[in-house]
Amino acid sequence: MNLNRRSFLAALTASAGAFSLSSRAFAQSPFIIPTYGGTWAKFWEETLVPGFAEATGIQGRLDVGLGKDFVSKIRAGGAASPYSVFMGNEHIAALLRAEGFFEPIDMAKVPNATKLHEGLLNPGNSGLRGIVSPIGIAYRTDMVETAPKSWTDLWDNPEFRGRIGLYQIGNAGALLFLRLTAKLYGSGDLDIDTAFTKLKELAPFTQASWSGEVSTSLMRGDIAIAPVDWTEILTLQDKGAPVEIVVPEEGVLAYEQSFNIVKSGASKDDAHAYINYLINADVQANMAKVFYTSPVNTESVVDGDLAKRLPIVGDKMSRIIRFDWDPYVDIAADVADRWNREIG
């Protein structure tokens, strides 16, 4: 992350729109910002939180954890949530939304939301997807003779048999792949019976709980091919690994981080300002450099060299296969239990 932080922050201060230099110079108490660990926490601590403070005057304090941790704290907080903003995969956000913990975004307070690519603002303004990490088919170039072109190649190409890696059900990637399988082979993306039948046809396969495990399995040669996000594969390529990733003919899946206003949060104005800042065009472009994510803002500019490595940017964001997670809420627990019993 060799960034010109001073010039970057100065540009963001000028472009933060309605929230530049809030009338309250600094918050009476810190605004709690949930985020993930590792590189995420480093970027938030060193770049995003200072930039947010400089652009808005709002002091943020990080709470580093996993989506499940944020969910537990919101549920435990009841009428006094420790968070005013939630960050987590959209399928997790749908659970909390169904339980009544969120309220619609006040669009007047998030002007950058009008610049989002289509499909990233939820119906009724009930949250938006502010960070997008596309998932394609990754493979070892020295272990695969025929590069995949379609998701169905995982079933149809015999050289992949017994050499496939998949996510475990606790990872959003597993749910995305399950619903994709239902869409490809069943009556629709909620045809779970057909999805399980088809998944069993891929056995035996290696399961991983997170993308780093997929990378490790690829590098050890335990697997030759797997659905995985661009972030992980481009990072491996940076290290000289013999891996490639493709956009399947049908389109890509994507980890989509959902940002929502917590109904019982004490700092909702700060939460709106934070979401507005996060989806700022320059912030999104900078995150693409660090995480290889696809900018959600239509005005974000990705430079030529990086754009060549990120095929899902700009108009190509339409190639993301998305699912409605609200109707999935009622079957989520049963699907997880069935996966553990039948897939292992």
Results as ranks from 00 to 15, higher is better:
Gly60Met: 00
Val302Cys: 03
Arg97Cys: 11
Ser150Asn: 12
Pro311Arg: 10
Lys73Ala: 11
Leu96Asp: 06
Val144Phe: 04
Gly130Ser: 13
Pro295Met: 04
Ser133Cys: 09
Val246Cys: 02
Ser258His: 14
Glu145Ile: 10
Val71Leu: 11
Lys183Ser: 15
Pro204Leu: 04
Ala11Lys: 11
Trp325Phe: 13
Met143Ile: 04
Ser211Met: 02
Phe8Asn: 07
Gly67Ile: 06
Leu121Thr: 02
Val64Cys: 08
Ser72Gln: 15
Glu249Phe: 11
Phe205Ala: 06
Asp334Cys: 01
Trp210Leu: 14
Gly65Glu: 10
Arg309Asp: 03
Leu9Val: 13
Leu253Gln: 04
Gly78Trp: 01
Lys115Ser: 05
Arg97Val: 06
Ala94Asp: 05
Ser294Gly: 09
Trp210Ala: 13
Val228Ile: 15
Gln207Asn: 10
Lys115Cys: 06
Thr35Val: 08
Gly170Val: 02
Phe160Gly: 07
Ser23Cys: 11
Ala93Pro: 10
Lys42Met: 14
Asp63Lys: 11
Ser318Pro: 10
Val228Gln: 14
Arg341Gln: 12
Gly37Asp: 14
Ser15Pro: 00
Gly65Lys: 05
Ser133Glu: 14
Lys308Cys: 05
Leu202Ile: 05
Leu218Glu: 09
Asp269Ala: 12
Thr293Ser: 14
Glu201Arg: 12
Ser217Asn: 12
Gly37Cys: 07
Gly124Ala: 11
Gln28Trp: 11
Glu159Pro: 06
Ile169Glu: 01
Asp305Phe: 11
Val71Ala: 09
Pro30Ala: 03
Thr216Asn: 13
Trp230Asn: 06
Asp229Asn: 15
Trp210Phe: 15
Arg5Gly: 02
Leu21Ser: 13
Lys263His: 07
Ala108Ile: 05
Arg24Ser: 13
Gly221Asp: 12
Ser7Ala: 14
Phe31Asp: 01
Gly51Gln: 10
Pro204Lys: 05
Thr235Arg: 12
Arg161Ile: 03
Arg5Gln: 15
Lys289Val: 06
Asp305Val: 10
Ala266Leu: 13
Glu99Val: 07
Lys109Met: 07
Leu234Pro: 00
Gly304Phe: 14
Pro34Lys: 04
Pro248Phe: 06
Ile74Arg: 01
His272Val: 04
Ala93Trp: 00
Leu175Trp: 07
Leu278Val: 02
Ser258Gln: 07
Ile105Arg: 08
Leu180Thr: 06
Arg341Glu: 12
Ala182Phe: 01
Asp337Pro: 01
Ala266Gly: 12
Ala266Trp: 07
Asn276Pro: 07
